[in-house]
Amino acid sequence: MEELQIKTNSKQYPLLIGSNILTELPSLLKKMKGKISKIMIITDDTISNYHLQSVLEILEPVYKLTSFIIPSGEKAKSFDYFYQCHTHALKEKLDRSSFVIALGGGVVGDLAGFVAATYMRGIPFVQIPTTLLAHDSAVGGKVAINHELGKNMIGVFYQPEAVVYDVSLLKTLPEAEMRSGFAEVIKHALIKDVDLYHWLQKNILSMSDLQEKKLEHVILQGIKVKAEVVAEDEFETGIRAILNFGHTLGHAIEAELGYGKISHGDAVAVGMLFAIRLSERHYNVDLFQSSFITWFESYGYPTNVLKELNPDLLIERMKRDKKSVEDKIRMVLMREIGSVEVVEVEESLIRLLLEEACHG
């Protein structure tokens, strides 16, 4: 087991990573300040079948527990399920000495974290990620729900008390889910870690290579990039926006297709390829986008999905992105591998390249 300290201006907390480390939960919680009156575990109807009972058995001898199960998928990041979680917490008489545990992937972590942040004006929570994708979302304190007009538009920054990353929980994930999470690993490499980029190209030739020590390595290295950025800019007033590389178009694709029709990682992968192409035109450099397309296709990313979509509708979605200012689209662009920045981009250029991708 390895421990990494996540440091922000508002809080420092541990991230534990290893295999079969859920048994560390009681001792970790005992280190938290004050007595814990009750723990509410929020998970989804897929993860609950695999892992909820194990967590209950580990914690039941020590704590009073209750659990709330949401549907799997982006549809659960809604006002309705946010309200249902609060209703359950109130009925179970959670108080300010209670804890929330987010047992699941990014959807569960975002929703449960937002519930914890707003219940009685804020109670502590712990992240237990069960997906590769959650290596990104579980760290840094971004918690939110979706609005039909935009993803993650309603939320706050609220740091967990700890993150417990038991990689043995990832063994039940289908390949599509691993691929979705791996897109965020690629993102972390491209924005800030050239060594990780070269390591991925050499060592991860397919999703089947994401096993044991290699899996732990990509998770830890990806989290280190995220942690470094978050330590510098907790509330996304500056550099933290680079973590949205590929997300401006990626989120637009998710919303336009309908949440859940394409995985977050698949959409972000397409968004990164578009951002690389846009970077080539904006900076007048050759980033060898065609080689990135070949690399992404080797993992199974749907690089042709833009052909199904309308450029005008995508642009309108992109204008609602949180980085946009006064209806101007701002995107994370790449000068070179490992070096990116947020740039205001001419809508005409975005439209031209989208039309090439959508109709080409």
Rank of each mutant, 00 (worst) to 15 (best):
G222Y: 04
D266G: 09
K77D: 00
S37H: 08
H51A: 09
I242W: 03
E148P: 13
W199A: 01
T118Q: 01
V343E: 14
D195E: 07
Y301S: 12
G140A: 11
K192W: 00
S279A: 13
L306A: 03
V163K: 01
I242T: 11
V230T: 00
M1C: 14
V325N: 12
G250M: 06
L25F: 03
K30Q: 14
I101N: 00
V340T: 15
A269T: 04
N20T: 02
L349F: 07
A227P: 10
V345C: 06
R96I: 00
Y83R: 11
L220W: 12
G109H: 08
S298R: 06
I39Y: 13
L65P: 11
D233I: 06
H86A: 02
T131K: 00
R121V: 01
G300F: 12
S37N: 05
I145Q: 06
L169Y: 05
G265P: 06
V225N: 03
Y50K: 10
T46R: 13
I36P: 08
K213P: 04
D327N: 15
I128Y: 09
L149V: 11
A269P: 15
L28C: 14
H147V: 05
L278Q: 06
E308L: 14
L243N: 10
V115K: 07
Q5R: 15
G109N: 07
M1G: 04
K91Y: 08
P124I: 06
C358D: 00
E297N: 05
Y259F: 15
I69F: 05
L22E: 14
I337A: 00
I145K: 03
L56A: 01
S72N: 13
E74V: 03
G250N: 00
S27F: 14
S54W: 08
D312F: 09
G104E: 05
L22P: 06
T23N: 13
S48V: 12
V325R: 15
A76F: 05
L29I: 01
S48D: 14
I315D: 02
A116Q: 10
A275E: 09
L353C: 10
L210V: 12
E355G: 11
N9E: 15
D209V: 00
G271V: 06
E341M: 09
I70P: 14
H51M: 01
K142D: 00
K202Y: 12
K213N: 13
Q53M: 14
S78Q: 08
K93V: 09
I350P: 04
Y197C: 03
H188N: 14
V285I: 15
F68E: 11
P174I: 04
K91L: 02
L210P: 04
E234I: 03
G246D: 09
I17G: 03
V342S: 12
G109P: 05
V143K: 03
V340D: 02
N9C: 11
L52R: 04
D327M: 12
I145V: 07
Y197T: 05
E347W: 00
G260K: 03
K91N: 10
D286A: 09
D44M: 02
I17E: 02
V62E: 15
V229L: 12
V342I: 13
L205R: 13
D166S: 05
I21P: 02
T294M: 02
R277T: 08
K7G: 03
R281V: 09
L15G: 10
E60P: 08
M40L: 13
M178L: 15
K31Y: 04
P14W: 14
K192L: 11
A357N: 15
M207T: 11
E212T: 09
